[in-house]
Computed example of a mutant assay.
Amino acid sequence: MPRLQLESAADVFNLDDVLNKDVGVQALAGVTGLGLPEVATQWLEGAGDGARFRGKRDRPRDIDLPLYLAGQNREQLTELLDRLAIMLDGECTLRLVEDDGNDWSTKVHFVAGGNYAYGIDTNGERDLRTVITVRAGDPYWTYSRSISKKITNAGAGRGLVGKLASMKVSSSQAIGTILLENAGTAPAYPLWTVVGPGRNFTAVSAVGRGFTWTGTLAAGETLTVDTQTGAVVDNLGRNRYGELAAAPKLWSVPPGITEATASLESTTTASSITCTWRPRKRMVV
């Protein structure tokens, strides 16, 4: 069955260890905050009755984790508490690990809790019960497996290999339609990887939002456009954001199946465009 896992860069707690090993850290019944995030709405009130809905945004989510810590003795319990305290001092990742090994995760920071009543929650010898609250600035859960679609220049006549668009293009151009399938319930952000040679890379969503990078890549050079962070860098780590055309719209992939178009000029058969994204969800179970 699915299990929760809390981890940092240096440590990992499988939150079902007491159930399986009799020692470790166990998430107890009563975990909250795994469902829909809170929503902040905007309304326009006029002179008449009621108000008109203007928009909304999902707010950060707070997750309450009731925890049971168990060691074989006082020394082991103290070690578990120290590890937990060190982990919660920085950014952590909370994962819901599925039976197949894939997971949904979100980045969290400790914001409250961790107290206990001596003589009730622990006697200081072997075990302890407490509740910690962590906050996820990004309210969505991101899937561990990514999905990729690739466009290459296959030579004269056609520019797309794989999910083929029926269009005639120049032998020096890679262009095509990419089928974007987001199995989540929240927008996913594509990561574009462009391999040169080529110039003037363009990506346009199904609803006409798009951006154009007006720079040039030599053979073997790579451009990466991260639509979530807004980073545009080449394979040497140089910032190439300034080469985006005016008013770029780094669009996201909505839930469901949509199509996007992408193109790159002055290409060879070594050139390619790869779109990679990971589904995201608003709630997990």
Rank of each mutant, 00 (worst) to 15 (best):
G113N: 09
L128I: 10
F13D: 10
S144F: 05
A219K: 14
V285W: 14
F110T: 03
T41L: 07
A219D: 15
P254K: 04
A9P: 03
L28V: 01
P255D: 09
V225A: 05
K150N: 04
A136L: 08
Q173A: 07
E75F: 06
L164Y: 13
S8V: 04
R129H: 11
P60L: 08
P37Y: 10
E45S: 11
A206D: 13
A246V: 13
R126T: 06
L180Y: 13
L217G: 09
G230Q: 04
G24N: 00
N182M: 00
D49M: 02
L191S: 12
G176A: 07
M87Y: 03
V31F: 06
D121S: 03
T276H: 05
T122W: 10
S271F: 05
K107G: 03
V285D: 05
L164C: 07
L244W: 08
Y189K: 03
A10C: 02
A247R: 15
V18R: 12
I63W: 09
G46T: 06
W251D: 04
K249D: 15
R135I: 00
R61G: 04
M167V: 14
S170N: 09
P279D: 06
A29L: 09
G159P: 04
A117P: 06
V232N: 12
K56S: 08
W141Y: 05
K249R: 15
